[in-house]
Design a protein around this nucleic acid. Sequence first.
DNA 1: CAAATCTCCAACTGATCAGTTGGAGTATGG
DNA 2: CCATACTCCAACTGATCAGTTGGAGATTTG
Lengths: 207, 207
Amino acid sequence: MAWDTARTRRLLLEAAVEEFAEHGPQGARVDRVAARAGVNKERIYQYFGGKRQLFTAVLEAELARVAGAVPLTAEQMADLGEYAGRVFDYHCAHPHFLRLLAWEGLEDGRTGVAAEDERAAHYAGKVAAFAAARENGLLTAEVEPAHLVYAVYALATWWFTAPQVVRMIMAGAGDDSPAARRAGLVRMVRRLTASAEDRSGDGSAHA
Amino acid sequence: MAWDTARTRRLLLEAAVEEFAEHGPQGARVDRVAARAGVNKERIYQYFGGKRQLFTAVLEAELARVAGAVPLTAEQMADLGEYAGRVFDYHCAHPHFLRLLAWEGLEDGRTGVAAEDERAAHYAGKVAAFAAARENGLLTAEVEPAHLVYAVYALATWWFTAPQVVRMIMAGAGDDSPAARRAGLVRMVRRLTASAEDRSGDGSAHA
DNA sequence: CAAATCTCCAACTGATCAGTTGGAGTATGG
DNA sequence: CCATACTCCAACTGATCAGTTGGAGATTTG
């Protein structure tokens, strides 16, 4: 049978995403990654170099996936609430990513940030789109575009980043389903980003 | 000289806060905690039981501190933007806490949440205060009170939770000082929480 | 088909670290 | 002033784990 090194590599990377998302760069066990992949752990050193590099590879792979998955089109720009909703949906469906990001944040300073240039460019694009929308009157001028970008991501993702706190906050509330969370998120982002003209309406002008 | 066991305990706890905030429950080293405290590590097992229990003790101690530090008074309730600003200020001054919380969030599910009942009650109090303010017309009725509580904390704390992402988002922006961040935060929370009457004004009615 | 190369793996190594132990020093109570 | 109990510590132990090695088998190439 022909060798399929690409498959072995892919199996290892998939296993590593799970392992690192679950346990973080410290808690992840190289042996477990190999076992999950059904491959000898020595392959990790051949293909990736070591645990550290494997983590970076995992982060870069997931970063690439997420960047393409939730694009910010001109249409999205007209209703940022719905855009935030889609970001929320993505992370509901792929809970690994924000865990990896959280671990990266906690390691921040100790090690460099993966793929920093591409990511910086990615976010610069978002900020530029927000700034353009503000020029066109689609977006409030009361708040800095960069701060609005911050708010959209903060509101869309904090559910996943501090799940234990969210659970306690929502404990009393009646409906705490993902759908209810999403609806609240969409409404909040609309309120936050709506321009003055839109705001004169009923607050759900975009619906 | 008289024994001062309380002091030894306190030294260990302070050292442990630093160590756990920096490296997390996995990465923290018992030997390092003892060295920082200038105490033999065996004391940790006598006073706290073990690494795990020490982490819980650390979390509970910090939780107690933060709960008292940023109260939500009736006066605060009238300007939630400023309340969010004070939460932000606290975490600027005490960066340990949110790191501990982030680690707790990542461990969520694997181990129980520390002091869950007190904390749940704490957040229930916030939600109740928001609900009351809504009745009084101080707060928008468009969004669930619990979701507004979520938003205030998400917006006030995400700076610290995903510092690497925030850095990239803010890269282009001119002024990215803590003061600028705080100002943006205050304005956003006001926009988000203002009731319909307030919103008819210029958006900074609370200033 | 033989030499060179690649894939795979079990077993090993050396370092690290949580947790323990035994004993020496120090206060306290009778 | 002695018995008891508490405080402190250096050295040890056993487990875990990242990373290595040497070799067995499969594949390619000339």
